[in-house]
Design a protein around this nucleic acid. Structure first.
Lengths: 229, 229
DNA sequence: GTAATGCCTTGACTTAAATCAAGTTCTGGA
DNA sequence: TCCAGAACTTGATTTAAGTCAAGGCATTAC
């Protein structure tokens, strides 16, 4: 079985499809490689298809005119991105860049639309994917607008822990600078808040390794309680 | 032709459907009325279908534990909402409430899924709708994270103007308190910034009527330039 | 006509987080 | 192994916006 085929089979949006459709997807897709920090597309570019991460890690982000970056998502293997212009509005709503050396599958628009039209379960899978993205955005807006930075950080740490079997020991999958951008803040502020949370005994930080010492208090904080001084 | 049928025909997600499908939609949907401020659903409730605004105006919002509200969307006639749990995750990701006396069509989940499965163009319409929502969310995150309140307000005013044939005279469709919540701020701050922008001659405010005096400068501001003192 | 209520505005003050400016630590390549 | 650049941390300061408090205005109800 080819590498392309492995990735297609791995991706949640293709779950439940028959072998014949997986074959078709393998035929219409193409693999593309990107080095660390290579741009994949820019906001406003025309989108003639979407991507699936085969290996590596990519970020979707917005930039302010002053150059401040807000990361919207970080995607890893199996996850699709860049679907919005496939279905509405033609152009990409944000920028995409490889965070590390990455390999992607590109699925061209028209061939995919044809496939979706012929196979309702594929349409439903894609509707489920977009709905999940909408749900994630409601959380991101809530975090940015209704929580302070310590609350956002606590939410993120708990989310990471849940991703990793609820382990209290976790390793940041991205640099602290990128984490700051994901949380809607800047490295200086993130650094200070990590320091404050360490001083209070909530967490222990050793480089990219973080130990959650007081999960209860972190949950409080994530629920938008404030960091008590 | 019935009132229900009128709404169905009006809604963009049903564009391009044959009469037979519109008939089916009319049969499976039910009309429900809500008074001003009546709750429609709460975050976490199970969603067994979605809604379309027939008349009136509804808001989708998040609440912090301290009671601060962040409005995610405001929807008017023809617009669907509450679709997320139809396709993924069962429960609503946010709260919905009638801003004024409103009438809604409710479309039950399973009947709608059946319809979508049988009619690819309906699936594509829904994919287009969800994609448009995702695009709007990228803008909202950008506004909240990368712009200050004056920039968000300027963006909103320009958006409103574009909605109303680029007229320089516009009327706020919601109260200033609700606008503050939509922009991710509080009434006091909005009031002060409206005052500051008036003092600078950018706009003229008379109650809910706002006149755009300097569209160029507003565009600057919306593009995340700052309000020069 | 007046009371009552909700909505909006204004002022004084506080605060979370950004900015500016140095350092320090880490890391990968010569 | 050492160097250079990147990533991170720390300190001093500024600032946008939130909080608290009071008062004005306007619409509806009586």
């Amino acid at each position: 079985m080819s590498r392309k085929r492995d990735i297609i089979a791995l991706s949640p949006i293709f779950g439940g499809l028959a072998e014949a459709q997986l074959d078709q997807l393998e035929q219409i897709s193409q693999e593309i490689s990107f080095g660390r920090n290579a741009p994949i597309f820019w906001e406003g570019d025309e989108g003639n298809g979407f991507y699936i991460v085969a290996s590596g890690k990519i970020k979707i982000f917005k930039l302010s005119p002053e150059g401040k970056e807000q990361i919207l998502h970080i995607y890893g293997p199996g996850q699709p991105f860049g679907e919005v212009p496939v279905f509405a509005g033609q152009h990409f709503p944000a920028n995409a860049q490889a965070v590390e050396k990455s390999s992607l599958l590109f699925i061209p628009r028209q061939a995919f639309i044809d496939l979706i039209t012929a196979h309702p379960s594929l349409a439903l899978n894609m509707l489920a994917m977009l709905s999940t993205r909408l749900r994630q955005f409601t959380v991101q807006v809530e975090n940015l607008s209704l929580k302070e930075v310590p609350g956002r950080l606590a939410s993120y740490l708990i989310y990471l822990s849940e991703e990793q079997n609820n382990s209290d020991t976790l390793r940041l999958p991205i640099s602290k600078g990128q984490l700051a951008s994901l949380l809607g803040t800047i490295p200086e502020t993130l650094s200070r808040i990590l320091g404050k949370m360490s001083a209070q005994g909530l967490i222990t930080v050793q480089g990219a390794d973080i130990y959650l010492n007081d999960r209860y208090e972190l949950e409080e904080l994530a629920g938008s309680g404030r960091l008590v001084e």
